[in-house]
Each structure stands twice: as C-alpha cells, then as structure tokens.
Amino acid sequence: MFNKIIFIIFLLLPLALLAKNDLQRVDSHRQQIIISRINQSTSAINTICCDFEQTKFLSLLDDKLESSGKMYFKQPQNLKWEYVNPYKYVFIISESKVSIRSMQGVEEIDVRSSRLFQEIVNIMVNSVTGKCLSDDSYFDIAMYDSDKALVARLIPRKKEVKRIFNVITLYFDKETFMLSKVEMEEENGDLTRISLKNVEVNVHVDDKVFSLD
C-alpha cells in the first residue's frame, strides 16, 4: 500500500511542477493561432540586434558556465553570434557560408558540405525568426500558455539533431510574440539556457557585420 502511494506521488509530481509553472498545454486549434500570430509578428522583422546571456548547466559537475555576447540577424539568412565574455568566439552565417573566429584562428565552411551544419544553420535562423514552428519536418511541436510567456517545446525529428538535443524550448513574449529565451536539453542531463536582452528590431545593420574582415 505504501509503495502504491509513493508511486502515485511520483506520477503526479510532473503535473504538479507544470501547474506551479502555470504552463497549460494548448489544443491544436489554439496552437495554430499562436503560431500564426508569431509568424505574423516575425514576418515584419528585417533585422534584430540584441545582447544574450548563456548559461550551461553541467549535470556531472553540478556547476554552470556563464557566457555573454551579442547577436545580429538580417533577412534573409544572415546571423552573427558573437561571444564576448569570458571567451571570444564569433560564428557567422551568411550566403551559405559559415565563418568562425576562435582562439585558433579563422575557419570558413560551406554549409552545403555538411548536412549537420545545414540542419544547425536552419534551426538557428528559424528559431530566431520563429519559422521553425511552421515546419514540422524538423520538430514535433507542443505549445503551452503561461502567465509570462508562450512556450513551444520542440522534439527533434532529424537524426542529426536528435543525437544532440532531447528537447528545445522556445519562450515568446506574450505581447510582442518575439523570442525571449531558448533552452536546449541534452540526453545527458545538461541544459543550455540563452536569454535575449535589449532586443532592437528593424534597426540598421550593415552587411559588414556579417563578415570577419
């Protein structure tokens, strides 16, 4: 009898946690409406500039690694992810090319040469714009509503991405429908959280930003 009670408590615990976070799963009809609103909002976006803060929770060490930097986006598919602190690292997607500047120097990769790179590039760009919610070839999508945000939980379908991530969770501001936070859970129990701050939309972004020169 005691074991049955413990078993039931453990079954109900996840639901209790969801309730505590005010996350309510929305039905498929409402999900389509939310995705449509996000698409409507992001379709008007030509450029995005923001700061980001990244926290990597390391389960084995019971520790975390914090980093920060700047992100730039410009239609149709230009993305710059620049880590400033505590390490310098630049990742640029522009015109089917990925350019990386690390402590080892500069590297350029043709996106078309690697399927994994193509998938990562598509996910990154489409996550920033919210377009990933409309393409179910990449993810199984479940939307949740809460007091603070609209939450999309994405379960990867592509083998290359599944190997790395269990779940990717996107948080959208309820008023602007803009992406505010991303969480990536790995199979090993690690979690990476990226928060976007000081977001500026449709400001001038020079094309030179997407070059390492």
């Binding site: 990244q54 690292y89 790395i164 690690d190």
Partner: peptide
C-alpha cells in the same frame, strides 16, 4: 566536462 562555445 569539455563543451564547445555553444555549450554542446
């Protein structure tokens, strides 16, 4: 732990 700059 060894991770890349994106935390992977």
């Amino acid at each position: 732990s060894v991770v890349n700059e994106f935390g992977i």
